[in-house]
Design a protein around this nucleic acid. Sequence first.
DNA 1: ATGCTAATGTATCATGTCGATATGATTTTT
DNA 2: AAAAATCATATCGACATGATACATTAGCAT
Lengths: 182, 182
Amino acid sequence: MDAKTLCLGVLSREPATGYDIRKAFQNGPFSHFCGAGFGSIYPALRKLSEDGLIEECPSSPDVRENKKIFSITPAGRKALCDELANPAPLGFEIMRSEFMFRVFFAHMMPQDRIQALFNERKALYHDKLDIIDNLLKKNSILPGEKFIAEMGKTLITAALQFLEKNTETLFALTSPEIGQQP
Amino acid sequence: MDAKTLCLGVLSREPATGYDIRKAFQNGPFSHFCGAGFGSIYPALRKLSEDGLIEECPSSPDVRENKKIFSITPAGRKALCDELANPAPLGFEIMRSEFMFRVFFAHMMPQDRIQALFNERKALYHDKLDIIDNLLKKNSILPGEKFIAEMGKTLITAALQFLEKNTETLFALTSPEIGQQP
DNA sequence: ATGCTAATGTATCATGTCGATATGATTTTT
DNA sequence: AAAAATCATATCGACATGATACATTAGCAT
């Protein structure tokens, strides 16, 4: 699932600029299961444009110059449908967590540093929950979108609860004084 | 958190070949929260070697020729500790799921295709649970490792339960006959 | 024995992605 | 009116990914 398909997916909902698309990945409805940066988005938009899957909306006086609003074309919508229905085995299901990597090596870290990690991670989970809760408040939400938002909420809530329940257990098992052990 | 640090982390547990490291990311104790392919691992091992953070074990007659077993050096262990204790804000916490991306657009897909997706994803979750359960059976497991394995188990179980509980809800909300809607 | 398949192992390449950065316009705050 | 935040496009180097190539070893069936 490359950046082109991701952008096409975002644009299938409503016309948007490259900037808007990035927001959809950062804070928006896609933020908890996919993403892309400018370095992927702008090249993708160029290619999609060349292939006629999206097109630039005609400039209008009330829109800032050199701001490019793209909308999906019928061909683009078909391409997205085809890609979605593609029966090839599911590709990525990737969980990458620097938090987990660090906690994995808890025995090599000073305990106050682990504590800080936990607090930081809990705060981030709360932020993500807020984003999702806002999504769920919209009444225009489609079934698939709703399902995925609720799935995200469930997973993040589970992570949060796990952290809250098991923090003390971990601390009890790691000695406070151990920091560097070369 | 780059490939070098990831490899260093794996090697801090026991000496390993590039191939072993990849297995640790694919099926091993790191498989549910980080990863890297050969294209990242071998260059990382070369650089770590150049920097003296790991070293190649001397060849022995009972080990196959041109098989390179690396072990972490004291300098490498120190570098890992420093990196782990680094108080810079946590970097990645990335969830990328092609499954979620597709289900998000459930209204554009034939219902039997969604059903197939669900089954495929459930099977993968079960595989991952098996891997983690095997990790938890080892009695040499360290506290951090155990914590992360149990966190992974919790998250995957939550995902699985969510899918099982809510499949029917989603199906009820998406019309069976809708496939392509251009 | 012999052939066959799967697993082990190192390595590289084209392509794509990430994070940082540059640049400037517009809006909001002070 | 100045300052700060946000909006918006774009590119660059460094790195990651997935595919592929190639060779060895182990198991195992015929």
